[in-house]
Design a protein around this nucleic acid. Structure first.
Lengths: 234, 234
DNA sequence: TCAAAAGTGTTGACTTTACACCCATGA
DNA sequence: TCATGGGTGTAAAGTCAACACTTTTGA
């Protein structure tokens, strides 16, 4: 697979090729979920001694025969059983000592999925959803990765029709607004929010109503087909 | 330096550790310059047979003992002699076959520098400035990297005080506007542009005027100290 | 006195914000 | 009939886009 590299730098020869391959590449997935009116993230208990008691993001080394997007899909699939999710690359983190076992550069992705709808096969492993507000410290530099990913999500959320991946197929405008409020961490005015969303023309009115409520039911919407972005463009 | 990795995945054991280290990591720098009212990028002739006659970005493998930002600074320093430049990470590119000599994942950075002011030591190597408009094809996936970086620069340019790195220390509003026009690829209204810029409060009025012009000279400005971003935060 | 670019304000269109009342439902 | 949230419009403030004339300088 990999012959010797021939990049043109006078410096290269001074260092053996093996040294260069002493860097491993991983992908870490910030898997956001939404449930109980809260934004959550899927974490696993770290099994490294150095990080005993801490949680970490879901990650794995990138294999020689898969590209970065494929690796992030694989990690999601392996850990959650899901493959119809939205993934977006965020940033590469490469501090020398970010991984205690060696030099690992990681590419962070964030992913959005509806907790209730996608009943994960979480039973027999140590994956758990954690409310963002309760996360103070994570293993590795994963808190920094989480913060960067959340900021990136916040920046995208009003520009691109991405958040629908966090909701069930059918949702009311109230549910959508509560989701936006969770992501942005601010309260929104109901009338202004509805205006802003309706201008974007992302929603399909389903002519259906909520049911089983002890108050007036709202209309149900779904995201229009052309904006369903399970798979990643970019 | 690198002991065996202990990431927790059932799959890991199936693949030898050596395979994982068969991936190399490089940094590619999209070095933007501005001269003659045009946005340019610094390219080098590719020395790979596969890309004969094509140009490529300036890149190099990341060393085991340097982080990504350090690697990008080193590349800039080695190639241009400059170390007071602004660098911003853009994206990681990891397609399997993007490098003909093996598996190389690259992290792209863009950099901004004033061509006239920083007289590079370009004499004895094959670095040249190329107008963006004339670049059709580059070696590797570097055209894609360039396009992504330009888009990223365009998105930042009105939000953050970054473009001043492309100009001499003192500049007129006309020069600044022409630069914005080159980056964004559109014409701007002079009065509206000045209003927009003055609202941002990035500029220091130097109480100096242009000289040696055959027309009315404009006032000179510099970017305020607190917004000089030679070094990268993020 | 001409050519070239500097400098400057206003208007109308649009966008954003703040804000309050009546309605439909189930308990 | 009450509690709960659904649904809706308007006015004021702010932002953005379009647009033209006078001034300064050197040649």
């Amino acid at each position: 697979m990999s012959k010797a590299l021939q990049l043109k730098t006078a410096e290269i020869e001074k260092i053996s090729h093996l040294d260069y391959f002493n860097i491993a590449v991983s992908v870490d997935c910030v898997i956001f979920g939404y449930d109980d009116k809260e934004l959550k993230v899927l974490l696993i208990k770290s099994d490294l001694e150095e990080f005993e008691g801490l949680y970490s993001l879901l990650g794995d080394l990138v294999r020689p025969d898969e590209d970065l997007d494929t690796a992030s899909y694989r990690i999601l699939k392996e850990r959650t059983g899901l493959d119809d999710v939205y993934l977006e690359q965020v940033h590469a983190f490469g501090e020398i000592s970010r991984h205690p076992s060696g030099r690992v550069i990681t590419i962070a992705y964030y992913s959005l999925l509806d907790i209730k709808n996608h009943k994960l096969k979480l039973s027999n492993n140590e994956l758990h959803w954690h409310s963002l507000s309760e996360i103070k410290k994570l293993a590795f530099d994963h808190k920094k990765i989480l913060d960067t990913s959340l900021r990136s999500l916040q920046e995208q959320v009003m520009e691109q029709p991405v958040v629908f991946n966090l909701l069930p197929e059918k949702f009311s405008l109230r549910e959508l607004q509560e989701l936006y409020e969770s992501i942005l961490g601010i309260e929104l005015d109901r009338r202004n929010f509805r205006k802003k969303i309706s201008v974007k023309d992302w929603l399909q009115d389903l002519n259906e109503m909520e049911t089983n409520l002890s108050h007036r039911p709202g209309k149900l919407y779904s995201v229009k087909k052309q904006y369903q972005r399970k798979m990643q463009h970019s």
